[in-house]
Design a protein around this nucleic acid. Sequence first.
DNA 1: TTTTAATTGCAAGTCACTTGCATGTATGGT
DNA 2: ACCATACATGCAAGTGACTTGCAATTAAAA
Lengths: 142, 142
Amino acid sequence: MYGSVDNMNDHQILATAKLRATTQRLAMLKEMRKIHGPFTVERLHKMCRSMDVVTVYRNIKSLVAVGVMREVRLKDASLRYEFSPGEETHHHHAVCNSCGYIEELSECKMHSLFSQQTSKKFKSIDEHVLEFFGTCNSCSKK
Amino acid sequence: MYGSVDNMNDHQILATAKLRATTQRLAMLKEMRKIHGPFTVERLHKMCRSMDVVTVYRNIKSLVAVGVMREVRLKDASLRYEFSPGEETHHHHAVCNSCGYIEELSECKMHSLFSQQTSKKFKSIDEHVLEFFGTCNSCSKK
DNA sequence: TTTTAATTGCAAGTCACTTGCATGTATGGT
DNA sequence: ACCATACATGCAAGTGACTTGCAATTAAAA
Ligand SMILES: [Mn+2]
Ligand SMILES: [Mn+2]
Ligand SMILES: [Zn+2]
Ligand SMILES: [Zn+2]
């Protein structure tokens, strides 16, 4: 659908997605590139103070719709987002229940491993969620 | 902590949980036993029309707190609940993206299989979520 | 029974978004 | 470069799914 975010600049991403290159969208993309791991709209908005939160919500939604970003639902109230990895780098996360540290886990093999175990009642499985929660090393020594 | 819901009656469950056996709680437990799979508060409240939704929310929360019920977060807006299976029958679900049919999958082996793959950055993994989404057989032939 | 702390119902509040609408602006056509 | 206009933005108001405050009930201990 679109090239990876790594080998396209922000204008190209927006053009490919048929989204206008507004000041706000360019600012958002610039800030998002600085974040590692799934972030909340609140966090991104703090980094893009000049625009309204509604604009952040709407643009993130557009980016999800065109496949540039994807939603990540962890155990907190707000949805998180991250650049959509290609099929090759589809992955999951490990979240520390104590400090909130999020680790990006390596490539996911769930689909191939488990699509068959989902019984005879399903014709196909095309999505899954898998997230781990625990205690990170630094939290375990306190 | 408490015996399985299968071999305890509703009064016993509440007594063990140190929760008063109110008309509302007894009605909720009675109705919940009729439901298979994770249900929403809205659905349970429709089956317990005589009480306020707030009471349903509060009591479900108490039951989760004492380990009788557990939360299940699928892709829809509302949380769902089901009787908490013992460690032995911890399991996950497959949800049809078309009709919403939910299948109870067999026992989960995620923890043993994947706790080690979560890198050297985590001391322990004590929770995980795993849910599948796809198309069920009956929806695939329409 | 009487006492008392737990529980309930109703109303109001909160949180994370979502929508309506008037104003502003990026882009395609001239 | 200029225009036209469909797309975007900001502000305010609206939603949906809970959560909380509080006075009135009620289960169950004394
Ligand atoms: Mn990630
Ligand atoms: Mn289940
Ligand atoms: Zn930690
Ligand atoms: Zn179906």
